[in-house]
Design a protein around this nucleic acid. Structure first.
Length: 348
DNA sequence: TGCATTTGACCTAT
DNA sequence: ATAGGTCAAATGCA
């Protein structure tokens, strides 16, 4: 653990140094790059070692980790309630690396080598695992043996009234116009609530399917900005859309696919993943997040449309859904990912 | 006028 | 008691 703290302290020092020198080096890209690189590597090293500790220390407890963080953070910073909560979340992540939403966030924040590391340890799976939360994990008995003794944290409230499967995806928030608008995902939603969430900087918005009353469609989603990066929103889907199955429903939408949104420092990519357990109920990858930068997304209501032309979405749809041929450019882009991130179903 | 959003109140699980 | 989730009246907009 000492080594971890050394890495973290070095990263913090490097960050401070970078902050101080920023005005001077902002125009010297090479120096800027090496400074950022140093910070990145230090945090990466820390995380790598924490992961190693986690794999070897089956009885690691949240308390001991928390104490380590607390002592580290208390050098000259008084941690308030929110910061404690954020550390709690980080600890949850460390003990539950399966939550895809966090993993994606981590992939953005740290070097790209980390996810392969997780993958090689067999601790991370895409497909069935994408975005599945703790409840989903607990149901997934086959995974227990692969958790390498990492215990799911003593959970906070697991289920509320509705016992629906939840899936979380990270999508880029709109950069222009009304950035509070949820990303487009091909469905029409109606906002029915917003709430401040303890330990989170940004409020959580609650949406239900516009056709809930008409078609008794139970689909809901929660949209929340990520604390660490407001440019990313965390979208949690619950319930299946049945509105499109109704004979009297509006025009159908394109077949949704499960997705993986892969965010890194400089660009955002959206990678389609076939879902083993549900191949028709989750939002289409191509549509998610495309509202960012879409001028039409500024201002108007958050509801979207069935059967209306969406040039950008269509373009992406074409890229992702242009049949099973392996010739399209997007597939070539994501091919390495697909090869490495083996779906559970393919294994069995 | 009808639909969507806002927001305080209420409900419910822990 | 508390926090997350939902309801519903008030309000805004086209």
């Amino acid at each position: 653990m000492e080594e971890v703290l050394n890495f973290i302290m070095h990263a913090i020092e490097s960050s401070k140094k970078l902050e101080l020198e920023l005005p001077n080096i902002i125009n010297h890209l090479e120096i800027l790059f090496s400074s950022i690189d140093e910070v990145e590597k230090s945090f990466g090293g820390a995380k790598e070692r924490v992961m190693m500790l986690l794999s070897s220390q089956h009885d690691i407890t949240k308390t001991t980790l928390s104490n380590s963080f607390a002592s580290m953070m208390s050098h000259d910073v008084f941690m308030n309630k929110t910061q404690h909560a954020q550390i709690d979340r980080l600890l949850d992540l460390m003990q539950n690396p399966f939550d895809m939403s966090h993993v994606l966030l981590e992939n953005k924040m740290i070097s790209g080598g980390d996810i392969p590391m997780l993958r090689s340890k067999g601790t991370l799976k895409i497909g069935e695992m994408v975005g599945r939360n703790v409840e989903g994990l607990e149901k997934s008995k086959g995974l227990e043996g692969e958790m390498q003794g990492i215990q799911t944290p003593p959970s906070r409230p697991k289920k509320r009234k509705i016992d629906l499967e939840k899936r979380t995806v990270m999508v880029p928030a709109p950069q222009v116009g009304n950035t509070d608008m949820p990303p487009e995902d091909g469905f029409t939603w109606r906002k029915y609530g917003q709430k401040e969430i303890l330990g989170r900087k940004y409020p959580r918005s609650y949406y239900r399917c516009t056709h809930q009353k008409l078609y008794l469609c139970p689909a809901k989603k929660q949209v929340q900005r990520v604390d660490e990066n407001p440019n990313i929103v965390e979208v949690t889907y619950r319930g299946d859309h049945i509105c499109h199955k109704s004979l009297t429903a509006p025009l159908s939408y394109p077949p949704p696919q499960q997705l993986l949104v892969n965010i890194n420092n400089t660009q955002t990519t959206i990678s389609p993943q076939l879902s083993p357990s549900s191949n028709s109920r989750w939002p289409q990858a191509a549509n998610l997040g495309l509202r960012a930068g879409d001028a039409s997304g500024s201002g108007g209501p958050s509801t979207t449309r069935y059967g209306i032309d969406y040039p950008v979405a269509d373009m992406a749809d074409t890229m992702f859904n242009s049949g099973s041929s392996s010739g399209n450019s997007m597939e070539s882009l994501f091919a390495p990912m697909d090869d490495k991130w083996e779906l559970d179903e393919n294994k069995s």
